[in-house]
Simulated assay, not measured.
Amino acid sequence: MTPYSLAFYLDVVTTGEVLGAGPAASPEHVTEVLGADFAENVCGRYAMFRDYGLVEFHWQRPSGGQPWSGHHFTLQVHRLAHQGRTAVSPVLRARYGRFAPRLRFGKLRRLLDRRGVPLVEIPEIPANAPSFRTFLQPASRVAVSVVGARGGYGAADRLRVGDVYSVHAPLSAAEVERRTAGTVLRGVRQAP
């Protein structure tokens, strides 16, 4: 087994789930999986997310009386460089052990390649380029955001070029199409 937290990231990128809870999971299911130690943030009556430190799950609903519908989850990997152990829920530590303060994209990509799980670079949102680069795992719809340049982006300033900033699922086909529409991919850099 891959040591420490690397196995966690490999599992998430490969499956598009956190311990079996996917982006569409209900709040109740996520609580069953990750426990009740979270900060809940309700944004009006139509959006909510639960913050487990490293992991955040987001929900939406069409009106205040409707049940929550899963929208996406994000692994806020950059928090590990600042909050360390406190950013990782006890459930994840019990399952995967120690989490390193940084995740090197090159190492993650090599391990995924060995599993036959490719990552494809897609164009970055213009506001985030060149500070970040995005890589998509097409089957699981998981996106990996990587620090692409030093400076100018808050927490990324404390990370190194080539560190994973966050992992997000799902990245919709519509979003990928929006990013690639009309974009010439000449000169796309090689992964760090």
Results as ranks from 00 to 15, higher is better:
residue 36 A to D: 14
residue 21 A to D: 00
residue 26 S to A: 12
residue 116 G to Y: 05
residue 2 T to Q: 13
residue 56 E to F: 00
residue 161 V to D: 01
residue 162 G to E: 03
residue 149 A to I: 01
residue 114 R to A: 15
residue 30 V to I: 01
residue 42 V to T: 15
residue 66 Q to V: 06
residue 25 A to M: 08
residue 72 H to P: 05
residue 6 L to F: 06
residue 77 V to D: 02
residue 112 L to R: 01
residue 148 G to V: 04
residue 13 V to P: 06
residue 11 D to G: 11
residue 17 E to V: 04
residue 115 R to Y: 05
residue 87 A to L: 06
residue 137 Q to S: 14
residue 2 T to C: 08
residue 55 V to L: 07
residue 179 R to V: 08
residue 24 A to M: 13
residue 174 A to K: 11
residue 150 R to P: 05
residue 67 P to V: 08
residue 153 Y to S: 10
residue 106 G to N: 06
residue 122 I to L: 03
residue 101 P to R: 09
residue 154 G to L: 13
residue 151 G to K: 05
residue 182 G to L: 08
residue 131 S to Q: 11
residue 104 R to E: 15
residue 52 Y to M: 03
residue 29 H to M: 10
residue 169 A to N: 13
residue 80 L to F: 08
residue 3 P to L: 12
residue 148 G to W: 02
residue 149 A to K: 07
residue 88 V to H: 01
residue 73 F to T: 01
residue 38 F to A: 13
residue 82 H to I: 14
residue 60 Q to A: 08
residue 146 V to E: 00
residue 45 R to P: 12
residue 17 E to R: 15
residue 66 Q to E: 15
residue 3 P to I: 02
residue 144 V to A: 00
residue 108 L to C: 05
residue 62 P to Y: 01
residue 143 A to Y: 00
residue 141 R to N: 02
residue 65 G to L: 14
residue 26 S to T: 15
residue 182 G to D: 03
residue 154 G to R: 11
residue 167 V to G: 03
residue 163 D to V: 09
residue 135 F to G: 00
residue 57 F to V: 05
residue 124 E to A: 09
residue 47 A to P: 00
residue 143 A to Q: 05
residue 142 V to H: 01
residue 107 K to E: 15
residue 19 L to P: 08
residue 38 F to L: 12
residue 190 Q to P: 10
residue 107 K to T: 15
residue 34 L to R: 02
residue 113 D to N: 10
residue 24 A to K: 11
residue 100 A to R: 11
residue 82 H to S: 15
residue 63 S to V: 07
residue 84 G to P: 12
residue 95 R to W: 04
residue 189 R to Q: 10
residue 50 R to A: 11
residue 130 P to M: 03
residue 18 V to P: 03
residue 31 T to C: 13
residue 27 P to K: 04
residue 177 E to R: 11
residue 175 E to R: 12
residue 6 L to W: 09
residue 86 T to Q: 14
residue 113 D to T: 14
residue 166 S to M: 04
residue 20 G to H: 04
residue 73 F to W: 01
residue 132 F to K: 02
residue 171 L to M: 15
residue 148 G to E: 00
residue 172 S to A: 08
residue 32 E to M: 09
residue 121 E to I: 07
residue 137 Q to T: 10
residue 34 L to Q: 07
residue 91 V to S: 02
residue 187 G to C: 05
residue 1 M to N: 11
residue 117 V to R: 04
residue 157 D to A: 03
residue 65 G to Q: 13
residue 132 F to G: 01
residue 108 L to D: 04
residue 145 S to G: 12
residue 42 V to A: 15
residue 185 L to Y: 02
residue 75 L to F: 00
residue 74 T to S: 12
residue 86 T to G: 09
residue 44 G to K: 01
residue 95 R to I: 06
residue 43 C to D: 10
residue 121 E to L: 05
residue 161 V to Q: 01
residue 151 G to I: 05
residue 154 G to F: 09
residue 33 V to H: 07
residue 110 R to H: 09
residue 79 R to I: 03
residue 132 F to V: 03
residue 141 R to C: 12
